[in-house]
Amino acid sequence: MKKHLSIIKIGGNVINSETELDSFLADFAQLQGLKILVHGGGRKATEIADSMGLEPKMIGGRRVTDQANLEVVTMVYAGLLNKSIVAKLQSKACNALGLSGADANVIKAHKRIVKEIDYGFAGDIDEVESKTISLFLNAGITPVFSAITHNKQGQLLNTNADTIAAEVAKGLSADFEVELIYCFEKNGVLKDVEDDASVIENINSETYAFLKSEGVINEGMLPKLENCFNSLQNGVDRVIIGKTELIRDRTIKHTMLTL
């Protein structure tokens, strides 16, 4: 029987609130069994870029990463945020290890191919080294992934944290029973982004196609859902979207995705 593995991606406003982040990390540290944390941090990177006089460029909600902004996101994601999270988890008796994709060569990527838009040093994932990650897990270590990968030729790349969570989940699904949870400040996928009570509690492939065609789902949620269904189609057992409190209380309203 496969061991259960929880992969949790944390993002949104939660990661920018010290109080909310600390509460989440306390719950995460108490979560039983094998676990992995993946975090974003785009808003913090934007704040620091602004303070340095750099103007972040966004197209369709995605960051365009030039060399200067790559240096900022690397400092923020793999440095400030990642090591702060690891230190807080260590204080809560969770033996965490902060990682970028370059560390132990765990996530290899390539610079996104330019089609209509050049996203700069944005990375699309080629391979997850699941055997190495499994070694960490089986040694009692909890990996904490930042949103930085590499191309194995010395180039760091800014990579979407939702995608990292999904690709790591897919890579480990052959050896573990993987549950992927996306946590942010909302209750789940909403029919109305202004109404937290309008949670769509169950979405399958057919429902998703309908909701997308009808324009019900907020455009910013679509890339996350694409990652979710891709992971389900590639061996991940369950995908859940909702508030951070979900990891300690599954009775809280949330969205469950199934094929």
Rank of each mutant, 00 (worst) to 15 (best):
N160Y: 07
Q153K: 13
E226G: 02
M221A: 10
L259K: 14
L80P: 01
E71R: 07
A49M: 10
I247G: 00
E179S: 13
K3Y: 01
A102R: 09
D124T: 15
V239K: 09
L97D: 03
L80E: 12
K152A: 13
L80T: 08
D124G: 15
K2T: 04
T163F: 04
A147Q: 00
D175T: 08
K44P: 04
S173Y: 08
E127I: 14
G40S: 10
D118N: 15
Q90V: 09
A161S: 10
I164P: 08
S173E: 07
K115T: 15
K3S: 10
P56W: 09
E185Q: 14
T149P: 03
V178Y: 03
Q233N: 15
L34V: 05
A104F: 13
V14L: 15
K83Y: 06
I252T: 09
L246H: 01
D249P: 04
S134G: 13
F28S: 00
V114E: 13
L5V: 02
F176Q: 05
Q32W: 00
K243F: 05
K57D: 04
F24C: 00
L222H: 04
C94S: 14
I181A: 01
V64P: 06
C228Q: 01
I252W: 05
R62L: 13
N160R: 02
A104T: 04
G154K: 08
D22M: 06
V168Y: 10
M58H: 11
H254F: 11
G120Y: 13
L37Y: 07
L31E: 00
I10T: 07
A96F: 08
E18P: 06
F210K: 15
I59T: 09
F184Y: 14
D162R: 02
K83E: 09
I247T: 01
A147C: 06
L137A: 04
R43P: 06
A45H: 02
L225V: 07
I48V: 14
L156C: 02
G98E: 07
L25D: 01
K152T: 13
T163D: 14
Q32N: 11
L211I: 09
S130D: 10
M58R: 05
I113M: 13
V76M: 07
V38H: 05
Q32R: 03
S91A: 15
H254K: 12
V14C: 01
L211P: 03
A87K: 13
G40V: 02
N151S: 07
G42H: 02
